[in-house]
Nucleic acid binder design. Structure first.
Length: 873
RNA sequence: GAGGGUAUAGCUCAGCUGGUAGAGCACCUGCUUGACGUGCAGGGGGUCAUAGGUUCGAGUCCUAUUAUCCUCACCA
């Protein structure tokens, strides 16, 4: 039983109503179902402090399209949803909130601080979920896990302990990237390099024995305080004699050795390098090789330490100025050169990174990476598009140990305990530990783990691992991961590593990577530039369906995409088109009409045409979606709905509905039947409007999202009828075209004579020629030659329109001659191909056959044109 | 320095396994056709960056070049 559709399509109202309907029915819930195959999608956990942004819109839309498609195709579909990382951003946000109240972390203490953080999670976690719901996400948010919750914490501890037992995690002194603003270490991947204008300060370090000095250059003179050697290349003849001697460090007076190390590039600069193990990663390595002392000259917030009273407390940049002045005064400064170099900055706050020696936990990646590399190389895990595999492999094959400790409070605390008395270390899943050597209570490591440490476990920790749950058994490995390519190194690679290590199985089959959403000028959307476009505003204005369709169509995987309001508008217009098409159908249906389960027997030619085309569409959309060609699928559905269904089929039914009777009934049935197919095919892309229309049309109250997705059905394939009807369409188009060329208004009707060998086909088109080609009457014969008529030639017929008063004989002749030339050119091209022995012998038989048919058609057409020219002249 | 992306209509982009180029927007012409002007009909507009190569046939595959963007590494 159909329901009324409002006259105006208002996305916002429709979407609110439909989302409520879905959640009331709890259709998103997934459970272990042995009768179905599972389809699982891992979704990137949005950060609770963030607002919904275009990146989410992209992720969420693509995921939801796949999920809805799979659900309709009979799978048990599950999202692995979650919110929030234990992250620097979250901590920073909470700290800044506290600051407004005049509080610091130390005021609250660890406990108090965490309490606050949980309160934040409650508040903002639900905010972002409700925003995602507005987008149409069919995720079962009731299942939502949180990386910091109990289950996930259990998994994290389990992993840490297992790594430790296998010797895959260790604590050691290394140079790490330290952010003096966030006061924490950050991983290499979190450092952003930017080109900065700087200087090269050329310095001279006097040899202790007074025999001269060595000239070297530095971009960071303040690190001079921590120099513990000067290095040259062992092959460098110029400096060989100095190796083993010592120089006296200017300003400090420390005597430091000249060492030989192949790390030094002889060609660069003077070939002499100052070595500061505490403040440069390469220097640190050199220091290890030569047993050099490591002297840290800076505090946590990058101020010079008390050890250098003259500069103590100065910020590193202030100290640089002061030291340069002093060097100059002491005659140690040779010259200053302008130099542009890359400086590492914190990706969160933009502060210049300070490389710094400290005690951190590291995961040994080399061994762990091997199975993860193999999983991709063997094709067990596929990247879409494929080229990102290379990206991934490059990263994995050159992997470095992963610094996992963070000097934050908001995160999984490192489950390591130290004995202050004897220095013993214990790693345990328990909350406290007693020293096995001296029996004293131990102190837990104050640091927390990198956010990606827990995120890497997402595909199984959310399913209950390390316990053996039925869910884990059923839903793991997951099917698809949808994310942006920028996150391959952060997250994708680490999930694969963890999956292979702990589940001994790939965590997912396919990684679908999309591009970044850029602003209309192609720039990265960012808060600091203020060029971000808020998806919620777009949804308010044009609807989530429009935004989703814009995101899904006209884009190929892995390519970045510019936000274009024009395209959102076009998609909104498309939704409106569908809405109005439905309104047309509904106003032409009887009150008690129901969606037919089967098509009627007495289908007209045009019915078979549209049914057959819809059938082909279903086939192609399935194929495309299986191959993750979401944009192509969307475009095909769009074209079918607008061009085939609305512009042609609906127009074709109008005269039949007016005529009434059997033909009207068949038309109504096909209209509704095809609309049902369209709604199902479009549902993954535009879930709200299709559901709303379905509810109005079907009237049974069953949700569209649980209907079966259309598949190809051989019984609905009518290639001949399709081809026949195309002939009628071609004729109608040709007539319209000619009338437009001659500026004949549609209101001016004219007689139409059709000369064709396929009378029975064209007879089925009479009412359409009248309705759609302004024919006042139609006469079909196998031979006719009316005087003073405009001639139109198509592949299957010659059409004559006697429009005596507007015919210009010369013009008409010129036009026909032009058409003749075109036809001759066509024939020349095709016969050129067919005359080519190579083509005929080497091209596939169907291609050659198609060319032959084309040639025959073109010749036929030429003959018709020549006939018309003859009769005019 | 290493690797990768992109180059197609005025603009934003599609083009699946090679078979004489498509969409949206913009532009031009004509339509108060009883679903829709968020619309209908018609139209103009492209040597598919350049030069070679493979092939019967290249926007599509290969090589080089140019332009542009990105990732990684980074020399003090």
């Amino acid at each position: 039983m159909k329901k009324e559709l409002e006259k105006l399509y208002e996305p916002k109202q429709v979407e609110d109503r439909i989302y409520k309907y879905w959640t009331d029915g709890n259709y998103f819930h997934a459970e272990v179902n042995p009768n179905k195959k599972p389809y699982t999608i891992v979704i990137p956990p949005p950060n609770i402090t963030g607002q919904l942004h275009m990146g989410h819109a992209l992720d969420e839309t693509l995921q939801d399209i796949l999920i809805r498609y799979k659900r309709m195709s009979g799978y048990e579909t599950l999202w692995l949803p979650g919110t929030d990382h234990a992250s620097i951003a979250t901590e920073a946000k909470i700290v800044s909130e506290m600051k407004k109240e005049g509080l610091t972390k130390d005021d609250l203490g660890r406990e108090g601080f965490l309490e606050r953080a949980w309160a934040w999670k409650e508040k903002y976690g639900s905010t972002i979920i409700s925003q995602l719901k507005k987008l149409g996400s069919s995720c079962d948010w009731e299942r939502e896990r949180f990386t910091m919750d109990e289950g996930c914490s259990k998994a994290v501890k389990e992993v840490f302990v297992k790594y430790y037992e296998k010797g895959l995690i260790y604590r050691g002194e290394r140079i790490i990237n330290w952010c003096p603003h966030c006061l924490t270490s950050i991983s290499n991947a979190e450092v952003e390099y930017e080109e900065q204008a700087g200087h090269f300060w050329h310095l001279r370090y006097p040899l202790t024995d007074g025999s001269g000095w060595l000239e070297l250059a530095t971009t960071r003179p303040e690190t001079l305080l921590g120099d513990t050697a000067v290095a040259v290349n062992p092959k460098d003849e110029r400096y060989k004699k100095y190796v083993g001697k010592t120089v006296t460090l200017p300003l400090v007076g420390r005597e430091i050795p000249v060492v030989a190390d192949s790390y030094v590039d002889m060609e660069f600069g003077t070939g002499v390098v100052k070595i500061t193990p505490a403040h440069d990663p390469n220097d640190f390595e050199v220091g290890l090789r030569h047993n050099l002392p490591v002297i840290n000259v800076m505090t946590d917030d990058a101020k010079i330490t008390e050890d250098y009273p003259k500069y103590a407390g100065m910020d590193r940049f202030e100290a640089r100025k002061a030291i340069v002045e002093d060097l100059e005064a002491g005659g140690f400064l040779v010259r200053v050169e302008d130099y542009s170099h890359n400086v590492g900055t914190c990706y969160r706050c933009g502060t210049t990174i300070e490389p710094r020696v400290s005690l951190q936990w590291f995961v040994k990646m080399a061994e762990l990476a091997k199975p993860a590399i193999e999983a991709v190389k063997s094709g067990d895990i596929k990247f879409v598009p494929e080229r990102f595999e290379k990206n991934y492999l490059n990263w994995m094959e050159d992997i470095r140990d992963w610094c996992v400790s963070r000097q934050l409070w908001w995160g999984h605390r490192i489950p390591a305990f130290y004995c202050d008395d004897c220095g013993e270390t214990v790693v345990t899943k328990e909350d406290s530990a007693v020293c096995p050597k001296c029996g004293k209570p131990m102190r837990q490591d104050p640091d927390t783990l990198d956010t990606w440490f827990s995120s890497a476990l997402w595909p199984f920790s959310t399913l209950g691992w390390p316990d053996k749950t039925p869910e884990l058994e059923y839903f793991y490995p997951t099917s698809t991961l949808v994310t942006g390519w920028d996150i391959i190194t952060f997250w994708v690679s680490r999930m694969i590593v963890a999956g292979m290590e702990f589940m001994h199985e790939r965590p997912f089959e396919t990684v679908l990577l999309h591009g970044l959403m850029r602003d209309p000028n192609g720039l990265k959307m960012s808060k600091s530039l203020g060029n971000g476009i808020d998806p919620l505003v777009v949804i308010d204005q044009y609807g989530a369906d429009a935004l989703r369709f814009m995101v899904a169509s006209g884009n190929s995987p892995g390519n970045d995409m510019r936000y274009s309001e024009e395209r959102v508008k076009a998609c909104r217009n498309f939704a409106n088109k569908l809405w109005n098409a439905t309104r047309f159908i509904m106003m032409n249906l009887p009150e008690d009409f129901a969606v037919p389960e089967k098509l009627p027997e007495n289908l007209a030619l045009e019915d078979k045409w549209v049914v057959s085309k819809l059938n082909t569409l279903a086939k192609e959309v399935n194929e495309n979606l299986e191959k993750f060609e979401i944009g192509v699928a969307a475009q095909k559905v769009y074209d079918f709905i607008w061009d085939v269904y609305c512009d042609w089929y609906i127009e074709l039914t109008k005269p039949r509905i007016n005529a009434g009777g059997e033909t009207a009934e068949a038309a109504q049935a096909v209209l509704v039947w095809a609309m049902a197919g369209i709604l199902k095919l479009l549902h993954p892309f535009m879930p709200f409007i299709t559901e709303e229309i379905w509810q109005a049309l079907d009237g049974t109250g069953k949700p569209l999202m649980l209907e079966a997705f259309p598949v190809y059905d051989e019984k609905l394939c009518y290639p001949e009828e399709e081809a026949d009807f195309e002939k009628i369409i071609e004729a109608i188009k040709a007539i319209r075209n000619r009338r437009a060329e001659m500026n004949v208004p549609p209101s001016k009707k004219a007689e139409l004579f059709i000369e064709t060998a396929e009378k029975e086909v064209f007879e089925k088109g009479v009412m359409f020629f009248e309705r759609l080609a302004s024919a006042s009457s139609v006469e079909i014969s196998d031979k006719c030659e009316p005087a003073d008529a405009v001639t139109i030639v198509t592949g299957a017929a010659r059409l004559f329109i006697p429009l005596a008063e507007i015919i210009d004989r010369d013009k008409e002749l010129a036009r026909l001659n032009k058409e003749k030339a075109t036809a001759e050119k066509d024939i020349a091209v095709i016969s050129g191909k067919l005359d080519n022995a190579g083509f005929v012998s080497k091209a596939p038989a169907q291609v050659v056959e198609a060319e032959r048919q084309k040639l025959a058609l073109a010749k036929e057409k030429l003959a018709k044109i020549e006939q018309s020219i003859a009769s005019l002249g």
